[in-house]
Amino acid sequence: MNSGILTLALLDGVSYAGMLFIVSLGLTFIFGVTNILNVAHGSLYACGGYATASIGLWLMGNDGGIINSIFSIIAGTLLVGVIVGLILEYLLRFFEKKPPILQLIITFAFFMILEDVQRLIWGTSPYFVSTIVGEMGNVEVLGVFYTNYQLIVLPGAAVIIYFILNWFLKHSLLGKKIVAVTHNKEVAVGMGVDAKKIKKITFIIGGLLGAFGGALASPTTSMVPGISADIIVLSFAVVATAGLGQVTGALIAALIIGIFRSLSIYLYPELEVVIPYVIMGTVLLFKPQGLFTVEKARRI
């Protein structure tokens, strides 16, 4: 294998990992706070991507340009993240007392509903608006040309979000409240934290992250039916490899899975789909709780 391909694979891997991390972060964040594995998270990604592409197409009618692209990413993220996140949170309120696995099935049902909603709104043909990628140009890295968008924007967004979320959880009042609810809901409520509000905010943040992942991916990946399912399984692989609820772990797991995935695309394309599961499976075989999970307090 020549070094050009290796470089390309690594760059692809890192940029893919950036997107994957953002989506997985939303999944793991909602799980960490509410103990719900949100299968509809894949739909958030897809809807975010579709919405961004639609807004982009609509704006491009007047004029292309980076500003419009950025605007469409932000608008798509906010629109989908907030609305879908809130609907989901509202829906789950009716099932608060049910076991986690049933709540998961509720999110699965919601996911099925959203599949049809997507098809009704966007049809079945691929959506793809790559203006921003072209506008931002290419750069030469170690002898290969690579787009600035994938090289800088995707990983950059991931790193920025990682730091913002960490700062938010550690230093802001709201973040501290969220952490308190995560550790011990009863105690937090006893101390005056409004758990309902926290849950709502959690779903909005999680929703925004999912939608943002889709929005960022939309210029380089075409949105097609079925993409929600691919993404939810892939981000679950990241989250499970890292350990449910682990933020830093998710960053590392996303990198590992992203890089191995793109290496396989270049080297053994037929293994592409299998790689994330092989990594997850191997990790879970040796560490059933994921790589970074600290042991839970005992219950007996």
Binding site: F108, F110, M112
Partner: peptide, 17 residues
């Protein structure tokens, strides 16, 4: 045909509730 998943999902939610 177009609403099949939607029907499935909604029924699932109603059953569990």
């Amino acid at each position: 045909t177009d609403y099949w998943h939607m029907i499935l999902g909604s029924t699932l939610i109603l059953i569990i509730y």
